[in-house]
């Protein structure tokens, strides 16, 4: 494959661009230079940084490839795009991760989101996927969510699971007729791709419900407020009490295209997880029941109830 010759556009050096674009390689150089400028975080006043990564003047860098006009310098014209990039992407994360925002606080959330996007710029054609590496980022750089690292990680996993449940793929559910002739010792069931099973250390489900309720209350208040220009940050919001540390097993799924989260017993979680890994129904159940500390329970009745419920929710499908 023909490749463009190495340039300094992917580096910290200020770009030196050809004044003519006569090839795809030169076009790529120009686009790399502009993208690198756009991906650089804004300064605290929401403007473009005055210096390039190597310390050279950003005005000089911008004027390498952007024409000034009678009202705006090259810097100012490039700054419009730099600001739009960050406003758009931060706005998207702000809307999609209200739980994480509540965990770390609004101001720190913006810093965290900026650091995240600086390290992991979008790799997808859709903004839906913008947070697809947030969990990885928070694992790699826990300082952004300290001292609530564990809670923040739980919340991000939970909020990403909702993205998946909202519009993730669905397979045809398995019907009783499909499995009638297969004994439990041989039966392997797949789980719907939109279903996420989460083992969490905090009750982020209740917490997120409270956060969303608070946000909708604030929105209602804002809508009826004649002083509509009050900036968001100035609105006084009552904090939602952070969740206590407790083990929670959660299934995040959809039913009739509505999003749901359902708490699971530890044994139920173990069975579903085991099925997801490819175990037979019999092995998954035996393993979970054997490991359980509960003794005063009619396991056959309990297992039947669970499997009936999961089947009616359409969680089972054929394994691919």
């Amino acid at each position: 494959m023909k490749r463009s010759k190495p340039t300094n556009f992917g580096t910290n050096s200020s770009p030196q661009l050809p004044r003519k674009i006569n090839s795809r390689a030169q076009l790529r150089d120009l686009q790399r230079a502009m993208a690198n400028a756009l991906f650089r975080p804004l300064n605290p006043q929401w403007g473009m940084q005055k210096r390039w990564i190597d310390g050279s003047s950003m005005e000089a860098v911008a004027s390498e490839f952007i024409k000034p006009n009678d009202r705006l310098s090259s810097f100012e014209r490039l700054e419009i795009y730099n600001r739009q990039y960050w406003f758009r992407t931060l706005d998207c994360l702000y809307d999609d991760y209200p739980g994480l925002r509540a965990v770390v606080g609004e101001r720190r959330f913006m810093k965290l989101a900026t650091a995240y996007l600086s390290r992991y710029p979008s790799n997808s054609h859709t903004l839906r996927d913008l947070g697809n590496r947030l969990e990885q980022f928070l694992t790699e750089e826990p300082q952004w969510s300290a001292p609530r690292e564990e809670l923040a990680l739980d919340m991000v996993r939970f909020e990403w699971a909702q993205v998946v449940a909202f519009d993730g793929p669905a397979k045809a559910p398995v019907t009783p007729d499909d499995i009638l002739d297969t004994p439990a010792a041989k039966l392997r069931l797949g789980l719907q791709p939109y279903l996420s099973l989460l083992e969490l250390n905090c009750a982020v489900d209740d917490f997120l419900i409270a956060v969303k309720k608070r946000e909708s209350d604030v929105l209602r208040g804002e809508a009826s407020n004649a002083m509509e220009a009050a900036p968001k940050a100035a609105v006084r919001r009552k904090r939602v009490r952070l969740p206590k540390r407790e083990k929670v097993y959660l299934a995040v799924h959809r039913h009739d295209n509505m999003l749901y989260y359902k708490r699971l017993d530890p044994e139920a979680f173990a069975i579903l997880s085991s099925l997801g890994r490819g175990s037979t129904v019999e092995d998954a159940c035996v393993e979970a029941v054997t490991a359980s500390e509960r003794t005063t329970i009619d396991w056959s009745a309990q297992l039947k109830d669970w499997f009936d419920a999961w089947s009616s929710l359409g969680w089972f499908c054929r394994r691919s």
Binding site: G10, K20, I21, N22, S23, R24, Q26, L27, R28, L30, Q31, R32, M34, A35, L38, F39, Y81, Q84, Y85, R88, T89, P121, S122, N123, S124, H125, L127
Partner: peptide, 25 residues
Amino acid sequence: CWGSVDGRYTHDLLPMPYTFAVARH
């Protein structure tokens, strides 16, 4: 327009340089 390079997306509709080579591409 363009909006991505090296697999990184700006989610913007960015202007093109208006040259014949770019038009052909």
